[in-house]
């Protein structure tokens, strides 16, 4: 999925310039208010991976989980880089909301 060969990013060259400034790996806390899971992930890794991992660990259906970073929805192809995440940032996990009216 996110294999280096499989997804050559057009921005690869730029990244090498940035890398010295920021550490390559980030620690990210994922919490759903009851559980906290820490992930260490690369800046360029799609968060899909992390989301899948969290869901799997918590036994949740990915389709029913909503990941938020500072109130912003996290989409599977997002990466910490695109979301401008920093070390120690928190991803909130919310449940799907459903509802109707009377």
């Amino acid at each position: 999925m996110a294999s280096p060969n499989g997804s050559p990013s057009p921005g690869g060259e730029d990244r090498t310039e940035q890398e010295p400034q920021q550490s390559e790996h980030l620690n990210i806390k994922v919490t759903d208010n009851n559980n906290e899971v820490f992930f260490k992930i690369k800046r360029t890794t799609q968060l899909k991976k992390l989301m899948d991992a969290f869901c799997e660990r918590q036994g949740k259906a990915p389709q029913q989980c909503r990941f938020l970073f500072d109130g912003q929805r996290v989409n599977p192809p997002d990466t910490p880089e695109t979301l401008d995440m920093n070390d120690g940032d928190v991803l909130e996990v919310h449940q799907e909301q459903i509802g109707g009216s009377c």
């Binding site: 899909k48 899948d52 869901c55 259906a61 929805r73 989409n75 599977p76």
Partner: peptide, 18 residues
């Protein structure tokens, strides 16, 4: 993976929804 059938909209911007 479970994300095989998703639509991300809009394709750019910070307020994408899945």
């Amino acid at each position: 993976s479970s994300w095989a059938n998703i639509l991300i909209y809009p394709t750019e911007g910070s307020r994408c929804i899945t």
